[in-house]
Design a protein around this nucleic acid. Structure first.
Length: 592
RNA sequence: GGAGCCGUAGUUCAGUUUGGUUAGAACGCCUGACUGUCACUCAGGAGGUCGCGGGUUCGAGUCCCGUCGGUUCCGCCA
């Protein structure tokens, strides 16, 4: 079938094109039949243009009567000025006086109407993603994503980085997230794993002297999903040799700055740096949201309530826990709000929520006031610098748990009371993360970031076996850092261990035996024996960067073919079953 | 693995609290009228396995149990 090539897109034409003869190809977005005149909106991803067809146009008038929504059409004609311009769209001053109208392809009646103000559920939109993507809202996101992609590679190219591809089929390592496995046909009973990240490869590339590596790559983690987590996601992965933390910060920060300049036309100021410990104490999170009005920092009142006589607090203080809280400025919250917040902190595993309502009439309302002396109450008030009209919320319990719960409560309050300034993007580096954490469940020491992370130089001595108590070990800080934007982790990285002796001490502490280590990471350690340079790197969550630029937290809105929270692809129906022969080839028997 | 919310026409929802005649509305779809619309308007029409399975009941969209799917949160995600 032949068709006329388009001379313009549906977003191109304006008043300066009047009298030109043009050809537009696109989809029927709307048909308005006024009985004697048709107005047809033709759409492509660039825009929408109005076609005007009257009986005098001849055959096109007949064709128009048989046209439906989402038909693919080709239309030729002369650009004319509209009698009644539509100022709301860029092409609104003109229309096409149609001389030729061809249906290139019909469309079945669509399961939902393709319109900007979409009514269909996400479920349906994902199943018919190709229809969903015809909406400007989604196609704009996809276009933006492409522009970010190009900006990133352009930036790193100008900085002398090499784009190097790493394998998608690699070896499974049980550490970290659950792997997606791929069975081997040639080696029955053996499996490849899809990369959780190209971590080991990029470190080997440094040993190879590749110096500055960059790749935008897919990563796979078989864990439970969230709005900002997909089973397969995209990382901007980079690694550099002969660098320290500040070098990595510079390169990464400049990349972000370049993207924001390109996409938003904004020159970002340099990003502040805060240690993990300070972030946890101040915001109850290692990814603090800095756009909250009044900042809403955590106030520690453990010392203030010591021996106050209120059993709950006394018990917590005596067992080494903490009592701390947040101040909600200028809000006298209702009973209903308190109940709701109490329920929320309980869902976080906290015992309850104490509060002081400092009413504007000077009275104080609190469920714990009858247990606590007026002096202590006044001290608490002073600590928070609470004024009439403020409400103070207190949580108590084991220190880290309490801080993390306060961090969540802070976000909940900010959301519920609309305290987040959505008009800005606030970045912050978080560094000096702990090297190790103690996993209560497994009752063992685990690597907080990953096992190749370099401890801070001044703390190297703590790795020695004679200092191996849990408290010392978990106090070790690492050359490890996250970039946080608007309370969302944009990425993380570290300076890596390049010396075998340090690496072995880390393995020791993680209780990994030689054979196990050899089997899993032998190739990397082997590589390190042949002159590994000091190196470090970073990995950005590409989807989250794009989502932020698109003004959403839901990365699905920025991915062409996203999966649901149960890791299904509704459009193509993956995962699906396979034929018995395929299983036989792989030597796989399915057990349910 | 745990908790919450949702599932009714092609679509978005109402109806579920308190079980009871023929399950409604809007948009879309079909037919007709209309020459300046852009959410066109107007008149008429078709369209339902109330997610699925079981149970209670004379009777279930409505109550109970299970299950599937969507979504949010906790755990998990080095």
């Amino acid at each position: 079938m032949t068709f006329k090539k388009r001379t313009h897109t549906c977003g191109d034409l304006n008043i300066s094109n009047v009298d030109e003869t043009v050809v537009l190809n696109g989809w029927v977005s709307s048909v308005r039949d006024l009985g004697g005149i048709y107005f047809i909106d033709i759409r492509d991803r660039y825009g929408i243009t109005q076609l005007r067809i009257v009986p005098e146009n001849g055959e096109p008038y007949d064709v128009a009567s048989r046209i439906g929504l989402e038909f693919v059409i080709s239309s030729s004609g002369k650009v004319i000025a509209r009698e009644n311009p539509n100022r709301n769209i860029p092409t609104g001053e003109i229309e096409i006086d149609v001389s030729e109208l061809t249906v290139l392809n019909k469309s079945a009646v669509t399961p939902f109407v393709v319109e900007e103000d979409i009514k269909a559920s996400e479920e349906l939109r994902f199943k018919f993603r190709y229809l969903d993507m015809r909406r400007k809202k989604i196609s704009d996101n996809i276009v933006l994503r492409s522009r970010v992609f190009q900006t990133v590679y352009r930036y790193f190219d100008s900085e002398g980085f090499l784009v190097i591809e790493t394998p998608i089929l690699m070896k499974s390592t049980p550490e970290g997230a659950r792997d997606y496995l791929v069975p081997s046909r040639i080696h029955k009973g053996k499996f490849y794993a899809l990369p959780q990240s190209p971590q080991t490869y990029k470190q080997v590339l440094m040993v190879a002297g590749m110096d500055k590596y960059i790749q935008i790559c897919k990563c796979f983690r078989d864990e439970d999903l969230r709005a900002d987590r997909q089973p397969e996601f995209t990382q901007i992965d980079l690694e550099m040799s002969f660098v320290s933390e500040s070098d990595v910060f510079n390169v990464c920060e400049n990349m972000i700055r370049e993207i924001w300049k390109e996409i938003k036309g904004i020159e970002l100021e340099s990003f502040p740096v805060m240690s993990y410990d300070e972030a946890l104490l101040t915001y109850g999170s290692d990814k603090p949201e800095l756009r909250i009005k009044g900042d809403m920092k955590i106030t520690d009142v453990t010392g203030t309530v010591e021996d106050c006589g209120f059993k709950v607090f006394d018990d917590v203080v005596n067992s080494g826990g903490m009592v701390a809280g947040l101040k909600l400025e200028g809000r006298e919250v209702t009973r209903k709000v308190i109940d709701n917040l109490t329920e929320y902190v309980k869902s976080l595993g906290m015992g309850g929520l104490a509060y002081f309502r400092f009413n504007s009439d000077g009275s104080v309302q609190s469920p714990v006031s009858k247990f606590i002396s007026e002096t202590v109450q006044n001290n608490i008030r002073e600590k928070f610098d609470a004024k009439n009209g403020d409400t103070v919320f207190l949580l108590s319990g084991e220190k880290k748990r309490t801080l993390l719960a306060l961090g969540n409560l802070r976000l909940k309050l900010a959301t519920d009371f609309m305290l987040i300034d959505e008009s800005v993007d606030r970045f912050i580096w978080i560094n000096d993360f702990p090297l190790f954490a103690f996993d209560d469940e497994a009752n063992q020491i685990i690597a907080e970031h990953h096992m190749f992370t370099m401890p801070k130089g001044e703390e190297l001595y703590k790795l020695d076996s004679d200092k191996c108590d849990i408290e010392t070990i978990t106090s070790i800080r690492a050359n490890c850092y996250d970039l946080v934007c608007n309370g969302s982790e944009f990425g993380s990285g570290s300076i890596r261990i390049h010396r075998r002796d340090i690496q072995e001490k880390v393995f020791n502490i993680l209780k990994l035996d030689k054979q196990e280590v050899e089997q899993k990471f032998g190739f990397l350690l082997k590589a390190f024996e042949y002159g590994a340079p000091p190196h470090g790197g970073f990995a950005f969550g590409f989807d989250r960067i794009v989502a932020t630029l698109c003004g959403t937290k839901d990365i699905r809105e920025t991915i062409a073919f996203p999966k649901t929270t149960s890791a299904l692809s509704l459009m193509d129906g993956s995962p699906g079953s396979v034929e018995q022969k395929q299983l036989d080839d792989l030597g796989i028997v399915i057990k349910y």
